[in-house]
């Protein structure tokens, strides 16, 4: 479990990043973070990662205060997929990026089979010898996701993974998120894509003006109109239509199809 208490960060130029955010994130749950541009979403997760050192508050991971731990120490527990993939790519081929993520493993056989599995599930097999900068943004994002899969940490944080992705990329990502859920990982994602969140994420936190203005289940957020509208968000199509047509709230395709099976 991650317990965040009164976390605040301001940048050296006095700019507010986040202000007094507290939240508990249970293990093996999924949390989506939404909110306007510049509200502090990326700052918040950079604090979790250790890239930014919060001036106030604490981050407690499995009963241990990790404020003092370096990025490297935290990276044993937390995997991270950046918003801009170019910030994170540095090897000269895609395969080398994946291998770098697997470098701590000892068993060579295991490494070889992992490389193949990861390339396959990220649809990168045929691009393996390409330079990471020579593929599309969607593919660059999958390289990072592949690396996170290789690192195999308990917690995975993704900053707007669906942005700039085509619809097939989003479907692929959906499969990976479902796989991570089955593996009992804790998934934290920043996104504006409510359709994706609705389908795959259990909990949501809304950040506005650097503060947490809502935390709870995504379903509850959909039930109270005032919640999503605070962040200028609209209900996802699936929720809006199910409410309008049948006065029942569906947030996933499975529920939607069930709804139309009932007599």
């Amino acid at each position: 479990m991650i317990k965040i208490e009164h976390l605040s960060y301001h940048y050296s130029n006095g700019e507010q990043g986040i202000n007094d955010i507290s939240i508990e994130i249970n293990s093996s749950t999924s949390l989506a973070i939404i909110g306007p541009n510049g509200s502090g979403k990326s700052t918040f997760i950079k604090c979790l990662m250790g890239i930014l050192k919060p001036q106030r508050g604490s981050i407690i991971l499995n009963n241990q205060n990790i404020n003092k731990l370096s990025i490297t120490q935290r990276s044993q527990h937390i995997g991270f997929v950046f918003q801009d993939p170019k910030e994170q790519l540095f090897k000269s081929t895609i395969e080398q990026e994946i291998r770098f993520a697997l470098r701590k493993r000892k068993d060579q056989k295991d490494i070889e089979s992992q490389v193949e599995t990861i390339l396959e599930c990220c649809s990168l097999t045929s691009h393996r010898s390409k330079h990471p900068y020579d593929v599309s943004i969607t593919q660059q994002k999958f390289i990072l996701i592949g690396c996170a899969l290789g690192m195999n940490q308990d917690i995975i944080i993704m900053d707007e993974p669906t942005s700039g992705m085509d619809y097939k990329g989003i479907k692929q990502l959906a499969k990976i998120v479902e796989f991570l859920k089955k593996e009992k990982k804790t998934i934290i994602m920043v996104s504006h894509d409510l359709d994706f969140i609705s389908e795959h994420f259990e909990n949501v936190m809304i950040i506005n003006h650097h503060q947490c203005i809502y935390q709870g289940t995504f379903k509850d957020a959909c039930r109270d109109e005032t919640v999503l509208s605070q962040g200028e968000y609209k209900l996802p199509d699936i929720a809006r239509l199910s409410l309008m047509a049948k006065h029942q709230l569906c947030t996933t395709h499975q529920e939607w199809i069930e709804l139309w099976k009932k007599r």
Binding site: G35, P36, N37, Q83, E160, S163, G164, H192, G231, E232, Y233, K234
Partner: peptide, 13 residues
């Protein structure tokens, strides 16, 4: 070219 990929809903509108 993909001007909305990083935008929040208000800015998109």
């Amino acid at each position: 070219d993909e001007p909305t990929s990083q935008l929040d809903p208000l800015t998109r509108r």
